Simulated assay, not measured.
Amino acid sequence: MIAKNYTITSEQGIHARPATVIVGALTNFKSEVKIEYKGKQANLKSIMGVMALGVPNGATITITADGEDEAQVIEKMDEVMKNEGLAQ
């Protein structure tokens, strides 16, 4: 299992469009991927789960990947967070 923290820098936080991009980027990975914010967890492969967390600007989230391709999942998340201007 690999976990990584991100601080959200997007003014709108994680709203519908970036949530869709994140979920779409992870669909082909086999690992279980979770997002955690304020003690609540959601499946990062579920748009509704991500949206339900209501992650705002300035929030610190933890993304956890567990499975055979977990390292690639975290690499992809680093790429998506940077390219979408979501986090540092």
Rank of each mutant, 00 (worst) to 15 (best):
I22N: 03
T64N: 02
P56H: 09
M77E: 04
K40F: 04
I74C: 05
G54M: 08
E75R: 04
G49H: 08
K34V: 00
I63K: 02
V21L: 11
K76Y: 00
N57L: 02
Q12P: 00
E11G: 03
T60D: 07
D69I: 04
Q12V: 09
E11Q: 12
I74M: 10
V23W: 08
T62D: 05
K45H: 07
T20A: 15
A42F: 10
G49S: 02
E11N: 06
K4P: 09
Q41V: 12
A16L: 15
T64P: 09
A52P: 07
S31Y: 13
K4L: 00
N28E: 15
A19C: 09
V33Q: 08
T60A: 02
A16K: 06
A65S: 11
T62P: 04
M48L: 15
A59P: 10
I35R: 04
G67Y: 15
F29L: 05
K45A: 03
I2A: 05
M51A: 05
R17V: 08
I74K: 03
V21D: 14
E36V: 04
Q72T: 03
K38T: 07
K34P: 06
I47F: 04
A71M: 07
G24P: 09
A16Y: 14
E32T: 11
P18A: 04
A59V: 03
G85A: 04
E75W: 01
N5R: 12
T7L: 02
V55E: 12
K82G: 02
K40I: 01
H15Q: 11
D78P: 00
V23R: 00
A25H: 07
I63H: 03
K38Y: 09
V55H: 09
Q88F: 02
I14L: 08
A65H: 05
P56W: 13
A52F: 11
K45C: 02
K30S: 14
M1C: 09
E11L: 08
V80D: 08
Y6W: 13
A16W: 13
T64W: 13
I35V: 15
I61A: 04
I74A: 06
V80S: 06
P18M: 06
Q41L: 08
T9G: 00
A19D: 10
A3Y: 13
D78H: 01
V73I: 05
L44D: 02
K45T: 01
M51G: 12
M77F: 10
